[in-house]
Design a protein around this nucleic acid. Structure first.
Length: 491
RNA sequence: CGGGGCGUAGCGCAGUCCGGUUAGCGUACCUGCUUUGGGAGCAGGGGGUCGCAGGUUCGAAUCCUGCCGCCCCGACCA
């Protein structure tokens, strides 16, 4: 593994790319825009999955699985939906290969063309609503509260590891309800689940809001989102929850008989987060020495690096640390002892910093003699020699404190990079000089939104749910506005 | 799809303009010795269809033609 990372201040984007590779999270695959998620990266994703999955279960959802392929005709059933996704769909046209006659390899067998092409799902609303049609006849069949963990493909023109890949992993929840209000409540509930996950697990503060019409999910009535701020001052949409109204029920003819025997269309929601959250996690906290992981999502929370010259010294360190490891494991702390004699302690220090292991313990002859251990915390870089007595509870407290402190740091950063302005010139100046979130008045029209985007590359990330109602005038058009919206340049 | 750049050892690169020893450097890898509290040192060693295909030439990584792939900028991006 090569040394060092580019500095964030010099080239943020290159810093990110290098970090992803050097922390052993992911790498490019032979296929353009796709990635190999490496074991360490995947183990972080698994921790995220486990936590989110539990939150889904706790809110009454079950997992299921629907197929990868969508018949082409399904996609066009909902007009906005096909409009939104058609340009980035991978299409399966044949089902067989054969040996080339000139011996150059295999070629597509022209006789094996599919009667109807299959789309590799960019999202599963269509397959799922087509299925729901068969499952729903009566109000007694409702609600249906399902989630699936899956891969989807969106043929993006430009990709970046985790942030935007042609194939990505995600979960997509799809629910069906008897009433409008119940579906709206579900939409909000899942938005809250995402926000809680982002803040409590990822230590990443987010703004909850609703998208403007132009940023809305194709086929949705309303799209809610959580928006996070990255260290370079750009926004990252980190999760979405859609109120679908009756749009997909209409497209797939999903009706139910209510208590009075009257037929009505079913109300729907869908919601998802993806491996993009990995990108968010990386960019929200990490520094020029590598990844910084909040303890709750760190696959290894504590690493012990023994300092030794001889086998006897190593054995003595192991004997000393064995009870500590037992104790930590018993209290749910993931702990690893790196006793390799093939790498120097300094190499290991750098390595675990790159990988974002929250707490590092170094134990050597000096410590054995004094009954101490050197404790280093990744987020601040602080090192402390502490007595072996009570070390286990010291570490547990430290992990809790770090989780909180990492969140607080991100929150402080966001506060310092959130600006209110009432003037278009200073709006542009803030974007160029400071970046971050800008709260400003907007007249509510798509035209104005588009103009601002063209001129500044900033988009309306969302209309925050908790914004205060206040009269104002649009920074661009000068027309009246009922409240501020959240602007930023975004990923 | 438009503009720019790049394909040489696992990775990162020099050499290409101006053709000419055995294609080189860093790192990684292997062996040995000394080391080990912040990415160790020394010595030795292995690893190459120079993106692919043609052409020019006594001779091509280097010049010419065609093709392929990747990266960056733009367009695009629930």
């Amino acid at each position: 593994m090569g040394k060092g990372l580019p500095k964030r201040s010099e080239d943020y984007s290159q810093w990110y790319n290098e970090l992803v590779k050097k922390a052993d999270l992911a790498e490019h695959s032979p296929v353009r825009g796709c990635m190999v998620i490496k074991p360490y990266g995947f183990s972080i994703w698994e921790k995220m999955q486990a936590a989110i999955d539990q939150m889904f279960k706790d809110t009454g959802h079950s997992n299921a699985y629907f197929p990868l392929f969508v018949p082409k005709s399904y996609l066009s059933r909902e007009a906005d939906h096909v409009e939104g996704f058609a340009k980035e769909c991978a299409v399966v046209t044949h089902y067989r290969l054969k040996n080339a006659e000139d011996g150059s390899g295999v070629v597509v067998d022209p006789d094996a063309r599919l009667e109807e092409e299959l789309i590799v799902r960019p999202t599963s609303e269509t397959v799922i609503w087509n299925t729901y049609k068969n499952w729903i006849q009566s109000y007694r069949d409702l609600p249906i509260l399902l989630n699936q963990w899956a891969n989807v493909v969106r043929w993006e023109m430009r990709t970046r590891l985790f942030l935007r890949t042609a194939e990505f992993l995600w979960q997509e929840g799809h629910t069906a309800h008897a009433t409008r209000q119940e579906a709206i409540d579900e939409t909000h509930q899942m938005l809250d689940v995402y926000a809680n996950f982002a803040e409590e697990w990822m230590a990443m503060p987010v703004i909850k809001g609703v998208k403007t019409e132009s940023e809305r999910f194709p086929g949705a009535v309303d799209t809610y989102c959580i928006e996070a701020l990255m260290q370079d001052g750009k926004a990252l949409q980190s999760g979405t929850s859609h109120f679908l109204g009756q749009n997909f029920a209409k497209a797939f003819d999903v009706k139910f008989a209510d208590k009075e025997g009257k037929l009505d269309l079913v109300w729907g929601t869908s919601w998802g987060v993806s491996t993009r959250l990995m990108g968010a996690l990386i960019m929200a906290h990490s520094d020029d020495n590598g990844l910084i992981l909040p303890p709750k999502l760190a696959p290894i929370q504590v690493v012990i690096v023994p300092i030794f010259k001889t086998d006897e010294q190593l054995a003595a360190v192991k004997e000393k640390t064995a009870p500590l490891m037992e104790e930590l494991k018993a209290s749910g702390v993931t702990c690893k002892l790196d006793d390799r004699d093939t790498q120097s302690p300094g190499w290991k220090f750098a390595e675990y910093e790159m990988k974002g292991v929250p707490v590092r313990l170094a134990v050597g002859p000096r410590d054995l003699e004094n009954n101490t251990v050197e404790v280093a915390r990744r987020d601040t870089g602080e090192k402390q020699v502490v007595p072996m007595e009570g070390i286990s509870s010291h570490i547990r407290n430290l992990l809790v404190e770090m989780q909180d402190s990492i969140y607080q740091k991100a929150l402080d950063f966001r506060s310092s990079r959130t600006t209110e302005t009432d003037d278009y010139e200073s709006f542009k100046q803030i974007l160029d000089e400071k970046g971050g979130f800008i709260m400003a008045h907007w007249d509510g029209t798509a035209e104005t939104e588009e103009k601002i985007k063209e001129e500044t590359k900033a988009t309306i990330r969302c209309i925050p749910l908790n914004r205060k109602e206040e009269e104002g005038t649009c920074i661009y058009s000068g027309k009246p506005s009922k409240g501020r919206v959240l602007f930023a340049r975004a990923y």
